[in-house]
Computed example of a mutant assay.
Amino acid sequence: MSESATFGGGCFWCTEAAMKELGGVQSVTSGYAGGHTEDPTYREVCSGQTGHAEVVQVTYDPEVLAYDELLEVFFATHDPTQLNRQGPDVGSQYRSIVLFHDETQREQAAAYIDALDSEYDDEVVTELAPLETFYRAEEKHQDYFEKHPNDAYCRMHAAPKVEKVREKFAAKIGEA
């Protein structure tokens, strides 16, 4: 049995690379969600006019990896206090967002976000919204970090997130 979770925490290349490290993750797909434009392109999303965020959809085995563990990794690999930005990426398409698939995910994410507020000096601004439609990003954006590990952006931004997951969540890596 598989379940899905959808997160946006800046550039989807970074979030995808971090999530793929976890045991129990069956697939991670980069895409767009949370906006109003049907079947948007990368260029359209980057314009900031579609309302969509760059997100990843994680398909996972809940017998191996729980949703709250995905939330833990998601929040550990981006700054949820940054409004409409992560690192060098600026715009609403890079906002921190959890798109829930059902009421249980909504409740778990809301509780997690509430608990996080006490850990930061600044307010956690992560958006919590129902997933309406997920649009798969163009093929060149899938597995980007794997395909381009020496790309300057990947070395500077994705690689540190992958390393953080490997160090902080080593027990969750390799579980199958």
Rank of each mutant, 00 (worst) to 15 (best):
K147N: 14
T37C: 14
A152T: 13
E54W: 13
E69D: 11
D122N: 09
K147E: 14
F145P: 01
M156Q: 13
L99A: 03
G51D: 09
A115K: 11
L116K: 04
P130I: 06
L70G: 01
F7R: 08
R155A: 10
S47C: 15
E139K: 13
K161W: 00
A53C: 14
S4R: 15
D68E: 15
A159W: 03
Q108Y: 02
A76F: 08
M1Q: 10
Q108I: 04
P80Y: 07
V56Y: 05
G10P: 07
A129R: 11
L116F: 08
E139S: 13
S96L: 01
L65A: 03
R166L: 10
A171M: 08
A53I: 09
R166W: 09
L99Y: 04
S96T: 02
Q93N: 11
S118T: 10
D121V: 09
A137L: 06
S96R: 05
L65M: 09
T104V: 11
Q142M: 08
A17I: 07
A110R: 11
D114R: 13
S2T: 14
V124P: 07
A129K: 12
N150C: 01
H78P: 04
E127P: 00
Q82P: 00
V25S: 10
G35M: 14
K164A: 09
F100C: 04
Y32V: 12
Q105D: 00
D117Q: 15
K168L: 12
A109F: 03
A66Q: 13
Q57L: 12
E69M: 10
A159M: 11
E107Q: 11
E3V: 01
C154Y: 10
Y153A: 05
A53S: 15
Y153M: 08
R155E: 08
S4W: 13
Q82G: 05
A115Y: 05
V55L: 13
E139Y: 12
V58E: 00
M156N: 11
E138W: 12
V25Y: 14
A171P: 01
A17H: 09
E72L: 09
F7P: 03
V55M: 13
G91W: 08
A110G: 06
A158P: 01
A76M: 07
M156F: 03
Y135N: 02
L116A: 04
V125T: 01
S92A: 13
N150G: 07
H78A: 03
P88R: 02
A110M: 02
T6G: 01
S27I: 06
P88K: 00
A17Y: 09
A137C: 02
Y153S: 07
P160N: 04
Y135G: 03
V56P: 00
T29I: 15
E72A: 13
Q82D: 03
G51F: 11
S27L: 07
A66L: 10
E167Q: 14
N150V: 00
E54Y: 12
M156P: 01
T29L: 14
A158K: 00
H148R: 13
L131A: 00
F134L: 09
P88I: 05
S96N: 03
A66E: 12
K172F: 12
D121A: 10
A110P: 04
Q108F: 03
P40F: 14
F75S: 04
K20A: 10
G23I: 07
A18Y: 03
E127S: 01
V73I: 07
E107I: 04
A18T: 05
A152W: 14
M19T: 02
